[in-house]
């Protein structure tokens, strides 16, 4: 499968701080990719590099096989929805569609029109008067109607109420099903991503902690609980992500490709949220030791 985003040692530095460092990813096509991490971890930076809004300080990045933002053809293949769904407050909804039609050769006017109708948006209403959810839907319509191959969304549902959030994701999944889009969306909440993502990238402290298909991640991460044990005493193929101990018991979250054979352990599966949290706390612990802090 071809990669929609391919990076090699990608890094971005602002003055003295690395907002993103050592990022090597090969994101396959045909997936809905969740980019999850705490605020300030570098998610917006990575997405900005993918759209060509930012230039790398180190390393390389290729999107759909081309350089991000290089020329109209490349721009036409990638749709982008920035944080808080910016729209032109003074322009009515219909003029936003005209904007899309004039600036995109691949514009699907019928798709856009049908969508606006189904959303019950008044074409003559100024975009500034729309609710947050309606603005997000309008921005998504604009991004989808230009028929891109890849859709990049930066925290698209962060500021939406639960109903708007659900409707937004519904529309997004409908578009994915209809147009076989690849999607990369970022969020600092795992719950937003669980239903829709089948590929996950965890970004904490400007670095990629783990990346892979959700199915594989859930299959290879286990929660082990048993008598108190030193994590270092585990077999080599097992990587401890997080560990907590009482005086008699150890609970470890491990990553391993093989089965857990030691009968002393009680093995159970791990939910996506707990998996991500484990990586976040591991990175935070490491970060505290190295006195690294990404500031926003």
């Amino acid at each position: 499968m071809t990669a929609v985003i391919e990076t090699g040692g990608l890094g971005k530095r602002y003055r003295r701080l690395w907002a993103l460092a050592d990022c090597t990813l090969s994101v396959p096509a045909g997936h809905v990719v969740g980019l999850v991490g705490p605020n300030g971890a570098g998610k917006t930076t990575l997405l900005g590099l993918a759209t060509g809004m930012l230039a790398p300080t180190a390393g390389t990045i290729e999107v759909l096989g081309g350089r991000p933002g290089a020329g109209p053809a490349q721009l036409a293949r990638v749709g982008y929805l920035a944080q808080d769904a910016p729209v032109y407050a003074g322009l009515p909804v219909a003029d936003h569609l005209k904007l899309g039609a004039h600036l995109n050769p691949g514009w699907d006017a019928e798709l856009a029109r049908a969508r606006i109708k189904r959303l019950d948006l008044d074409p003559g209403q100024k975009a500034g008067a729309l609710s947050g959810g309606q603005r997000a839907q309008l921005a998504l319509t604009l991004a989808v109607a230009k028929r891109p191959e890849l859709l990049i969304l930066d925290e698209p549902v962060a500021s939406l109420d639960p109903l708007a959030r659900r409707e937004f994701l519904q529309y997004l999944m409908e578009s994915v099903g209809e147009q076989s889009l690849s999607v990369v969306l970022s969020s600092h909440l795992v719950a937003d991503l669980e239903r829709v993502c089948d590929y996950l990238i965890v970004l904490v402290g400007s670095r990629v902690q783990v990346a892979g298909p959700v199915e594989e991640l859930l299959a290879t991460h286990h929660l082990l609980s048993g008598p108190r044990r030193d994590p270092g005493s585990l077999p080599d193929g097992m990587r401890v992500i997080s560990a907590s101990h009482t005086d008699v018991q150890s609970t470890l979250l491990v990553r391993t490709s093989g089965p857990v054979l030691d009968p002393a352990w009680m093995v159970s599966g791990v939910g996506l949220e707990d998996l991500v949290l484990a990586y976040m706390s591991q990175a935070a612990g490491r970060g505290r030791r190295n006195h690294l802090e990404v500031q926003r």
């Binding site: 659900r166 519904q170 529309y171 999944m173 409908e174 099903g177 209809e178 239903r195 829709v196 089948d198």
Partner: peptide
């Protein structure tokens, strides 16, 4: 249809 289920439940069509 796959896309209708995905849209109705807001889940990944691959699922």
């Amino acid at each position: 249809k796959v896309k209708d289920v995905a849209a109705g439940l807001a889940i990944n069509p691959n699922t």
